[in-house]
Design a protein around this nucleic acid. Structure first.
Lengths: 179, 179
DNA sequence: ATTTTCATGTAATCTGTTACATGATTAC
DNA sequence: GTAATCATGTAACAGATTACATGAAAAT
């Protein structure tokens, strides 16, 4: 099973949904940490149905095809429950970090401007996530506690990014200047 | 050009190297933010040579094939310099964040243990990176300043992860307990 | 003797993105 | 009437992983 499969099971564990709805649900808050297009989601749902982790109900759809509502099965819930406590795979892919390594291969002023922009964007996200968090319950027994945890990770991630990018921009502004 | 191509150019901007050496060089510190296997690196180097961003020199190798040393060209440097100040693409893929969303679909105690392990690992990395940073120059005019910047990003990232995972583990230990 | 390091490649597979394709209903 | 939303799919391509393949030299 692919990670996307588990992402979909995570959403379906909260209630039945169509592929279209899952595409929207993937955007927030999961999308802050795992993105997927509908072209990837539809075939994955078919695979989940094939192995019995979800069941499908077909109704008349608005377009030429039937609308399909997916419901997680007991086997799907078990698979999710077994997957969750396992050590997560970390595959680092951050262009920001990569560019930092080569920072001296470009103009210092231009790179400072880049990191200032990155810092500003990160600060904006921190503020937005914080505002959302303020309206939510931080009770771990709340069924929506997962949303709270994800947003909180978003806050610390972007907070750190903002601090680092600000530091780097400041340092780059000093390039060529006397000590 | 793919991101990996620019990653290789970033390394070659510091000096000529073979594919084998680049495979090792990708591991640290770049590898903390962008990983690549040799099976991906060798064909990418061939592509870079084809478009003239690097030149190859062949020498007798230890095995059945010639050893190839790659040197960045002026065109390669220019491509790198143009790429660096552009806004980096951010493609979120973090299993840790994904699992946080579904945290209530597994046993709270088991998940608490997971986040405690994640926090411990992150703390270890913070300590290791800090030790390395202490022996390095934070002068932005230093040619190895990029290494410093990357490690510093590693510190803030894992620092944030550690704090968050500790908070989450603590919260999960409260599940089912009275307020 | 055996394992590790040096050194390069290909093939099969999996994952993910972009683009193409269809068509009803609702809102403006 | 035009655009957005609802709703599902496929095809072509790009990017990345795992496994297969070869062989010398150096270290244990």
């Amino acid at each position: 099973m692919s990670t996307l499969g588990y992402a979909l099971l995570s959403l379906l564990a909260r209630g039945p949904a169509t592929g279209y709805e899952l595409t929207r649900l993937m955007k927030t808050p999961i999308g802050h940490f795992w993105v997927a297009q509908h072209s990837q989601i539809y075939p994955e749902l078919a695979r989940l149905a094939e192995i019995g982790h979800v069941v499908v109900r077909e109704d008349a759809g608005p377009g030429p095809r039937a609308k399909k509502t997916y419901t997680i099965t007991e086997s799907g819930r078990e698979a999710l429950t077994r997957w969750l406590p396992q050590p997560p795979a970390v595959v680092p892919r951050s262009e920001i970090g990569l560019k930092a390594y080569a920072v001296r291969s470009a103009d210092a002023g231009e790179m400072a401007a880049l990191y200032e922009a990155i810092a500003a964007e990160a600060a904006g996200k921190v503020a937005a996530y914080r505002q959302e968090l303020d309206q939510m319950s931080d009770d771990p027994d709340d069924p929506r506690f997962g949303n709270y945890a994800v947003l909180k990770l978003g806050v610390v991630s972007h907070q750190g990014m903002c601090e680092w990018a600000t530091w780097l921009a400041t340092r780059l502004r000093q390039v060529g200047s006397p000590t």
